[in-house]
Write a protein that binds this DNA or RNA. Structure first.
Length: 603
RNA sequence: CGGGGUGUGGCUCAGCUUGGUAGAGCGCUGCGUUCGGGACGCAGAGGUCGAAGGUUCGAAUCCUUUCACCCCGACCA
């Protein structure tokens, strides 16, 4: 492909509003144009990358006997009412939805569990048709609260979503394991360094789930990893062994103390320097929006008797942090958010900063994170402005509230199994960051039951189909690849997903020897099935060609210049700098390119 | 949703405080000299100054409203 035939525009400076490398470089290199917040044109060069990624995704899915299909982007509200997710998605504000001419309501699909379940329900009658896994690659629409970082979090993005259908839980787990391996293969082939982590399943629902995190400091997710044990989990989900609290010492009677202005743990610590942070219990109030149907089903009561909103108070040790995801799950909530100032005043009778478990308003449910277990003689809010209680004991001064894991793992925490079996006693957790490029779920029968997708089993019984679902952010994979592979000069594409395998830079266009040699190399590479981009722009000087070459980051490079008459070219790969450069014959160069492509599995 | 910031040729920005009818660099077009790491000279093209309204003889500049985009926060009891 001749570069002069293409629409190819690069910028010397990146547009001002690009924060991360992948976004800035894609804009500079003309891969991307922003149309609105989180909505982009995928320019030709980027489209080639996306198609390469899609090719790998298809190849790995097809090898695992998955079938590709395509579902509609527009979905009717009815389908979402069947699964019970319409209200949740609308209340979270991420659903693009609008009225039809006839008055019905539709949405732009943010995901496709409803459509696929509806399809399979109509198509599958018998256990003989299962298992089966279907997938599609398609544009998804989500009106993100805060789109950002270019392709990293868009409102419209390319996603591969797959769905498995099985006759039993065990079979579902088998399908899930197969897909886990498919995902490992895909991300490995895309040249990414990644970590699979245990994850929260969020709005999708279901039991087990894992995310595939590309290791990158610019990632939006925090993950807890332990090198010693291989444990890895999204911070939303991670568990650790909570360090023991400091002992109480002398047991004193509970008493109130004036604590003017002390609304934070640090301020209280200054006031009571002898008190360790672990004997300071904070009480945090949340406004909760309940998932009424799920909650009613869990508790076995009528949905109409369940409150939709409420305020809860959660206790937590001073040195630990709460985890809103865990809280949300435990409460069967749609979402939890910090209570407003007015709500805090109504619940505690005090200004913000003095909430405690004793004397809370009766309509506020009280919970505690398990970090409070074993804490004695603690300090807590007095539910009275400028006042805290000291020397409080659960069991003596108040009952310990319902306690569960609501805490956030901290760097340095020990893994839960530390010191047991072969696990070292000092197996600690560190916190790193990652970009979520894939997420796999064991859905169970959540959708098949709500949408009555069943099959007739060998035993003559109708049973709900066991489902799994599996997503990859294709456009996000492209961005992640740049985050992981770039330098000051530009992108460095992994060979298998590079827009072209090879860039041939011609120094002097119109020079007979160079023209002829370039044509020969171009033709031979093309015949060998290698896509080569030939920079034969006439009025662009060598320096600019080199800058552009570095910017667009095609990994294999051949420079055809002054030694062309002697059949000599410069081998000049994107990485390695001057050390990697060599003058070799054109035949050797071709051989190297073909070999590299074959070794990388680039087809 | 709350807070902060920014909107001036394709890109990066100046001009605004103190109103007088729009500039620079890059990029683009033509000509010439150059030609292995973003050359130089000369001559050009290109802008409803985000939008609407107001004040004024006169608004990029002052006032009001509005829209868009970016960033931070959803972590405080």
């Amino acid at each position: 492909m001749k570069l002069s035939k293409q629409l190819f525009v690069t910028l010397r400076e990146a547009p001002a509003d690009a924060e991360v490398a992948s976004h800035a470089l894609m804009l500079r290199a003309g891969f991307l144009q922003q149309v609105a917040a989180g909505i982009y044109v995928y320019a030709p060069m980027l489209w080639r990358v996306l198609q390469r990624i899609e090719g790998i995704v298809r190849d790995e899915h097809d090898r695992a006997d998955c079938q590709e299909m395509l579902m509609p982007a527009i979905q009717p509200r009815d389908l979402w009412e069947e699964s019970g997710r319409w209200d949740r998605y609308v209340s979270e504000g991420i659903l693009f939805h609008f009225k039809e001419r006839k008055g019905g309501e539709v949405c732009l699909g943010p995901t496709h569990e409803e459509v696929i379940t509806n399809y399979v329900k109509a198509s599958v009658q018998s256990y003989k048709q299962l298992p089966v896994t279907l997938y599609q690659i398609q544009t998804k629409f989500r009106d993100e609260i805060r789109p950002r970082f270019g392709l990293m979090r868009g409102r419209e993005f390319i996603m591969k979503d797959a769905y498995s259908f099985d006759t039993s839980e065990e079979a579902m787990v088998e399908s899930y394991k197969t897909m886990r391996q498919v995902y490992r293969n895909i991300f490995t082939r895309c040249g990414l360094r990644f970590t699979p982590v245990e994850a929260d399943s969020g709005a999708i629902g279901g039991s087990g789930s894992e995310e595939f995190m590309v290791d990158a400091d610019t990632g939006e997710d925090a993950i807890a990893v332990c090198r010693a044990t291989g444990y890895a989990a999204n911070l939303e989900k991670a568990k650790s062994r909570i360090p023991a609290p400091a002992a109480c010492g002398e047991v004193l009677a509970m008493h109130k103390e004036p604590t003017p202005g002390a609304t934070t743990c640090d301020a209280l610590l200054e006031m009571f320097p002898e008190l360790p942070m672990t004997r300071l219990l904070k009480t945090i109030l949340y406004h909760v929006s309940y998932d009424v149907d799920t909650l009613a089903a869990r508790d076995g009561v009528e949905a109409s008797t369940v409150a939709t909103e409420g305020v809860v108070a959660v206790m937590c040790r001073g040195d630990r942090e709460l985890n809103e995801t865990k809280l949300t799950n435990h409460l069967c909530a749609l979402k939890v958010e910090l209570a407003s100032e007015d709500e805090v005043k109504a619940a505690t009778g005090a200004d913000v900063g003095y909430a405690g478990p004793i004397g809370l308003s009766a309509d506020v449910r009280l919970f505690a994170d398990e970090s409070v277990n074993g804490v004695e003689g603690f300090l807590c809010g007095g539910n009275e402005t400028d006042t805290h209680y000291l020397d409080v004991h659960f069991g003596r001064d108040l009952d310990q509230p319902e306690t569960a894991d609501f805490g956030t793992v901290q760097a340095g925490d020990l893994v839960v199994e530390a010191g047991t079996g072969d696990v070292p006693a000092d197996a600690a957790i560190e916190i790193t960051r990652g970009i979520e490029v894939g997420h796999i779920f064991q859905l169970g029968t959540k959708y098949s039951e709500s949408m009555s997708a069943s099959f007739l089993d060998v035993d003559q019984k109708q049973k709900p189909i066991w489902m799994g679902c599996y997503g990859i952010g294709v456009s996000r994979v492209a961005a992640s690849a740049i985050e992981q592979n770039h330098d000051d000069a530009g992108m460095i594409w992994p060979l298998e997903i590079a827009p072209y395998a090879c860039l041939m830079v011609q120094m002097k266009v119109g020079d007979e020897a160079q023209d002829a040699l370039c044509q020969k190399i171009h033709d031979e590479l093309t015949a060998a099935g290698v896509d080569v981009l030939w920079d034969e722009r006439k009025k662009v000087r060598p320096g600019a060609k080199f800058k552009d070459a570095d910017l667009i980051g095609i990994p294999l490079r051949i420079v055809v210049g002054r030694d062309a008459a002697d059949d000599q070219v410069e081998w000049s790969p994107r990485v390695g700098g001057d050390d990697a450069k060599e003058v070799i014959t054109s035949a050797d160069a071709i051989e190297r390119v073909v070999t590299a492509c074959r070794d990388a599995g680039r087809r």
